[in-house]
Nucleic acid binder design. Structure first.
Lengths: 362, 362
DNA sequence: ATGAAAGCGCTAACAC
DNA sequence: GTGTTAGCGCTTTCAT
C-alpha cells in the first residue's frame, strides 16, 4: 500500500545522513546520546528532507495520542462554543489537540461519537452528556479506564465521574438575592424544570446533598431560587414559577401568558440563555417598561444584553473557564494515571446593568 | 512499553476464537472470505472481548486517518462557530472526524497548528488564514500534496488554492441595491477596508477579476457597494465611506463621529458583524430613529438583530453551508486523489426586517 | 477458506 | 556512541 502523502520518514533521514535508523531516532527525539557530528548530520538531513515526525507511529508505540475528545450538544451554541474555546486553549498549551463532536442531544449520535473517539484512541474525553437513563457508551469507556469528565451536567447513573460545571444553584441564588436586596419580594422565575414546587422544596430544604447533586442544571437553579427566598423568609409561590420548554418561542409564550394572567410580580429571572431571549421578546411584545414595571435578570452574558436598552443584567457563567477546567482535569488524570477525583463547581457572577430597579418601601 | 488502556486487539480476538490473526482480521474488516463458522466464532469473540478496532493502526497501514483539520481564528466567534458546525456535520456524515485549532489571527500559532495537524496526518485541512504576506506553513503542506481549502478569505500568494467563501461583493451589493430600491441615494458604508476610494473605484471598474479575487473580504464588499452605486448611476462619495478598525468600539466611534459630522446620509450599511454591533450602539447612543432618520442594514444574522426594535435587516452569509462546502470539497479532493480545483462562492441573502424605510420621492 | 509473514514509522532494549 | 532487533495493531499479498 502506497502512503498517501509520502513525507520523509526517519529511515529516509538516517539514510540521507548516513547513520542508522536508531541514531537518527535518538537525535530527532532528543533522547539517548549521540556525537556532535552525528547530531549535526541528522539534523541537516532532516531539514533538507523536510522531515516531519509521524505522530501516528509515535502514538502506536507510546499508547498516547496527545489528543482529547470533546462531545457537545452543539458547537454553534454560544455557551458551548465558549466552552470549546476554553477547552482547546488549555489543551493546546499542554500539548494536546482536540477532536470535536456534536450530538444535538441525540443519544445515538452521542454514543457513536464516543465510540469513534475511543477508536481513534484519544487520551481522554470531555462530555456534556445527553440526559438519559442509560448512557452505556460513557459508562463503558469510563469502565475501561479512559479518563472522562462530565461537563455542565451530571447523569444519575454516572455519579462517580468528575463533573465540571457552574454552581447552578448559587448562580440563580445570586440573581434572586440581588433582586431581594433591591426590595423585590414577588419574584417570578422562568424555568424548564418540570418537578413540582413541593418536590423541589423538599430537596431545597432537605439535607440530602447527594440527591441534589444528581439533579439537572435547570432544577438545581430552581433550588437556588427557593433557598434564596427561604433565607429571606419570603414564601415561594407556585404562581411565580413559570414553566417553559427549552426554546425561545416557548419561553416567550410562557412569559406572555404570565403577563396576561394578572398575577403580580415585580421581578423576573430567567434561568437559561434561550429562556432569557424568549422572556425578553415577551417583555418587548407586551411593552413592559424595564425596570420600572418589572425588574429583569437574564442568564448568560449574550452579546445582545448590552445592545438593548436598558442593558440587561445577567448571571454570567465562566464559560471558557469551564472548558479550560475540563481540559486540565482530563490532562491531570492522563498524566497522573489516576482517575481525576472530584468535581469542580465554578462560580457564576452577576453582571449588574440597567434592568433592575429598587423598590421603594411603601 | 505497556499500552495505556489495553483494549482487546485483533490477536486477542483471534486467540479467543481459535483462529488465525488474518482470519479474524478478514471477518472484522468484512474483506476477503471466511466460512460462516469462522465468521460467527470471530464475531462472538469480538463481542465478548469488547473488541474495538484501533484506528491508529489502520491509519498506519492505509495512510488515511479519516480525520480533517480545521484552523480558524476563533471558534467562539459566532461566524466561525457556525462554520465549524457545518464543517463537522459534513465531515461526520462522510465518516471523518475533525480536529480544531484557534489561531487568534496569530501567524505563529497558525503555522504551528498546521504543522501539528500534518504530524497527526490529517487527510486534509481547511483554513481561514491569517492575512499575511508569507504563509509558509500553508504553502508547504499544499506543496506536499495535502488537500487544503481556504475558508472565507484568500491569500495573494496562495492564489492556486481553492477557496470557499461567501460572494462578498454580491452580499454588499444586495444590501445597497435594496436601499436604492427604497429610494436611498445617500448611502453610508461602514468598512474596515483601508484602500482609498480611488483605488477601490479603479478595481470596481476595471476588468481585472484576477486582482479583485485577491482582495480581502472587507475590500471586496466595498467593491460590491461601488458597483451597485454605479449600476444605479449614483456617484460614490468619499465622505460616505466610514472607516473603522475591526472592533465594536472603534466602529461605534466611527459612526458616532460620522453622525456628529453633519454629513448627510439617509442609509447606513455595515459590512461585518462586529462593525454592525458597533454601528448599532452608535445609533442608540445618538438616539437616531431607525428607519425614519436613517435606514440601517447590518451584516450576519446575529441573535440580537431580531431582539431589538426595530428588528435589524441584515445580510446573512450561509455560515453552516460554508463550513459544509469546505468539508465536502476537501473530502472530494481526498477521495479523488486530485487537488480540488475551483472556488466555491456561496450567495449571501438579504433578510429584510424593519430597519429600512422607503424614501418618498420629493 | 485459511494461515504465515511482511511492513506502515517509530521507540527502546540490548548488544557491540 | 552506535547499530540491530523486536514490536505497537492492523492489512494484505502469498502460499497452502
Amino acid at each position: 500500500m502506497t502512503q498517501r502523502h509520502a513525507s520523509a520518514t526517519i529511515i529516509d533521514v538516517a539514510r540521507e545522513a548516513g547513520v542508522s535508523k536508531s541514531a537518527a531516532a535518538r537525535v530527532l527525539a532528543r533522547s539517548g546520546s549521540a556525537s556532535p557530528q552525528t547530531k549535526q548530520k541528522v539534523l541537516e538531513a532532516a531539514e533538507r528532507l523536510g522531515y516531519r515526525p509521524n505522530q501516528l507511529a509515535k502514538a502506536m508505540k507510546s499508547g498516547l495520542t496527545h489528543t482529547l475528545g470533546v462531545v457537545l450538544p452543539d458547537v454553534a451554541n454560544p455557551f458551548f462554543s465558549a466552552v470549546l474555546r476554553g477547552f482547546t486553549d488549555a489543551a493546546r498549551s499542554a500539548g494536546f489537540e482536540v477532536l470535536v463532536s456534536n450530538t444535538d442531544n441525540d443519544p445515538e449520535i452521542e454514543s457513536s461519537s464516543i465510540e469513534l473517539l475511543a477508536e481513534k484512541r484519544v487520551d481522554g474525553i470531555a462530555i456534556a452528556p445527553v440526559l438519559q437513563r442509560d448512557p452505556q457508551a460513557i459508562a463503558r469507556i469510563a469502565a475501561e479506564g479512559i479518563p472522562v469528565v462530565l461537563l455542565d451536567r451530571r447523569l444519575p447513573t454516572l455519579a462517580a465521574l468528575p463533573l465540571v460545571s457552574a454552581d447552578h444553584a448559587d448562580a440563580t441564588a445570586q440573581a434572586v438575592r440581588a433582586l431581594i436586596d433591591n426590595g423585590h419580594t414577588r419574584i417570578a422565575l422562568l424555568t424548564e424544570a418540570t418537578q413540582s414546587l413541593d418536590e423541589l422544596r423538599a430537596i431545597a430544604e432537605g439535607p440530602d446533598d447527594a440527591y441534589f447533586a444528581l439533579l439537572r442544571p435547570s432544577a438545581q437553579r430552581v433550588i437556588g431560587y427557593l433557598r434564596a427566598l427561604a433565607a429571606a423568609e419570603i414564601p415561594a409561590d407556585e404562581h411565580l414559577l413559570l414553566r417553559s420548554a427549552y426554546s425561545v418561542d416557548d419561553a416567550q409564550r410562557a412569559v406572555e401568558a404570565f403577563l396576561d394572567s394578572g398575577v403580580t410580580a415585580t421581578a423576573l429571572h430567567s434561568t437559561d440563555a434561550a429562556l432569557t431571549s424568549g422572556a425578553y421578546r415577551a417583555l418587548t411584545a407586551r411593552d413592559i417598561a424595564v425596570p420600572q414595571d418589572l425588574a429583569f435578570i437574564g442568564f448568560d452574558d449574550q452579546d445582545w444584553t448590552t445592545l438593548v436598552r436598558p442593558a440587561v443584567s445577567v448571571i454570567d457563567q465562566p464559560r471558557q473557564r469551564l472548558g479550560a477546567t475540563a481540559a486540565t482535569t482530563l490532562i491531570g488524570a492522563i498524566r497522573g494515571h489516576a482517575p481525576s477525583a472530584h468535581d469542580h463547581l465554578l462560580n457564576a457572577s452577576l453582571l449588574m446593568r440597567d434592568s433592575v430597579g429598587s423598590i421603594t418601601q411603601a
